[in-house]
């Protein structure tokens, strides 16, 4: 057993556990996107950042790839961590604003602005599809190609792969390209339609309910703005 401190609690982790797995075991919530229990950790989305160490030497590490160590001092929700997570969400949002998963994360963590150029790429290079293809389907049909800003996920030579069995696992697991955010202006900006929900449907309702019935418009989860008392005047001007 490895003993270390997490959020002031003394926790025990088994050999080989990561910080994230330990946190999950103790019921501490750490947001994730590129992490999946059945796949190897990748540390790509940086949402699971936690702060380790104390004082000026404290640093941010991705908890899904950082192994639990004896005597670690981990904090999962410091200001620095929350700021970094918001920045990561903002960056991912600028790449794939059409993604329901990312728009939901933005709403959940209060990301209300996006200061970057919208790229509408439908891929955030989280590597989930690559890993599920290799590790669970044992097909190795898709993978990363090129590097830097040209990095992309594709089959060899961008043609139909011989080893692909069309199982659809890559599409099933993709957080960006399948489930579309249906809120207002989802493709151009931060949607935040789900932000005003009370209670937030992200946790309470099945997400299907939202995108099947035009999120933000059906009214089941969004509080409508209280009408101004002088509504007649508004009608006249309109």
């Amino acid at each position: 057993m490895i003993k270390f401190i997490m959020n002031g609690l003394e926790v025990q982790a088994e050999e080989g556990w990561s910080i994230l797995e330990t946190a999950k075991f103790y019921g501490l919530e750490i947001p994730t996107l590129c992490y999946n229990e059945g796949l190897s950790p990748y540390g790509g989305c940086r949402l699971c950042l936690v702060e380790i160490g104390e004082g000026p030497r404290a640093k941010l590490v991705s908890s899904c790839t950082y192994p639990a160590e004896e005597g670690l001092f981990v904090r999962t929700d410091t200001n620095r961590v929350i700021k970094a997570r918001r920045m990561m969400i903002e960056l991912m949002l600028s790449v794939a604003p059409g993604s329901k998963v990312i728009q939901d994360l933005a709403s959940k963590f209060g990301v209300k602005q996006m200061r970057f150029e919208v790229r509408n790429e439908e891929c955030i290079l989280c590597g989930l599809c690559v890993r599920i293809c290799a590790e669970q389907m044992d097909a190795h049909a898709i993978g990363f190609q090129n590097r830097g800003h040209k990095k992309k996920i594709s089959t060899p030579f961008d043609i139909r792969s011989d080893v692909c069995r069309h199982c659809g696992a890559c599409m099933y697991i993709c957080p960006a390209c399948q489930l579309r955010c249906q809120g207002p202006d989802a493709d151009t900006a931060v949607c935040n339609a789900c932000l005003t929900m009370d209670p937030t449907c992200l946790d309470t309702y099945d997400e299907l309910q939202c995108w099947m019935y035009d999120a933000g418009k059906c009214g089941t989860c969004v509080q409508e703005k209280p009408e101004k008392p002088n509504s007649e005047d508004n009608e006249k001007t309109a």
Binding site: H140, A141, G143, Q145, N146
Partner: peptide, 18 residues
């Protein structure tokens, strides 16, 4: 080696060209 891994290496380094 899966072909995609080789493609990954070949496209990663600039000294290789497809």
């Amino acid at each position: 080696i899966p072909l995609i891994h080789i493609i990954g290496v070949a496209t990663f380094y600039r000294s290789f060209s497809l």
